[in-house]
Write a protein that binds this DNA or RNA. Sequence first.
DNA 1: GGGAATATTCCC
DNA 2: GGGAATATTCCC
Lengths: 201, 201
Amino acid sequence: MAQNNNNNNVLELNLGLGQSPRQRSPAPFLLKTYDLLEEGEAEDNTNCKIVSWNSQGTGFVVWSPAEFSQLTLPRYFKHNNFSSFIRQLNTYGFKKISSKRWEFEHEKFQRGCRHKLGEITRKKCEPSVFPAYLKSSSEENATSSTEENNHQLLMEENKNLKKERLELQMQIDECKALEMKLLACLSQFMDTHNNKVRRLC
Amino acid sequence: MAQNNNNNNVLELNLGLGQSPRQRSPAPFLLKTYDLLEEGEAEDNTNCKIVSWNSQGTGFVVWSPAEFSQLTLPRYFKHNNFSSFIRQLNTYGFKKISSKRWEFEHEKFQRGCRHKLGEITRKKCEPSVFPAYLKSSSEENATSSTEENNHQLLMEENKNLKKERLELQMQIDECKALEMKLLACLSQFMDTHNNKVRRLC
DNA sequence: GGGAATATTCCC
DNA sequence: GGGAATATTCCC
């Protein structure tokens, strides 16, 4: 798995396909959290850090949640609640990797890789296109499910389905474009390779 | 407690929504906006108000949006943007009732009626409440001749959309698989190529 | 004005 | 941790 990733990275560099994993502008939350770590790093770190990258730079540690909440958070966010910060981490797929301290990791959130933040996406709730209120109480629906209600609900579901279709189609377009680039690259590479071998023989 | 909830639901269903004012705890936004007006009223200076109830107490006026944004808003909310405040007013159904000044009204938001704030709801309906368009359609029971036909068409479209979605998803899976193969092929080819060149040299 | 994305809060 | 309501932002 790790090997796969490595290969991909090498190829991406060679191909100039840096944007292949959907690069969007990173969420404000991710930028702020990254910057907050860089700033912490730059500080005259004597012996009592509040928050910092872990030793490998593959994640970060909140050493002092209390100070972090009171001093750090309000300088970057509109609150000073540690739990709200954690909630956001979970939303973006970070994992708590230690039971003994507040250490978090995300594959795409690493020291020196601010440019990868755009690849991190919010966790989405289930792609169900069915309106939420239908899932709630079946009793109410039973007593009031008239033809008109069904009609409206159907229309809403259809609208959602169409939106979803558009998104899927865009995903396919992206895939196809990447495919073309890969094929072009492969054929160019074969040419180069053949020429080289010919020259050497 | 559970019994109370049940009763409320039954009553709402029987009476048709909107008849019996259901008292919930008011949204924080409403309480803060109300309190901010009361506080403004209590303040000493009478000649240069920032914000206040209108003369009848049926609404309120932001006399100085700039000062309001910079001084008042951050004391009650997590921002100092006038437009965010307006966005909230709209969300809760307030109406701008003057083109010449920032004056807003809401039927249930009146001076001396802090207890009525619980009757104000956000425009977006909650799961337990039926959407606005369903309420209106039950009152206007005039059209249902062509509805049936329409309904069938909608169901058909819905079925087709779901089928299409499945197909698109399969296409995406195929694309992804091909992508992996191409990448694997490319990387293997690079290895082979390098070995060949090395041998030949 | 309002739809929709993101942020913050609340609650299980 | 995460679902869901509310708040804030961004954009049309």
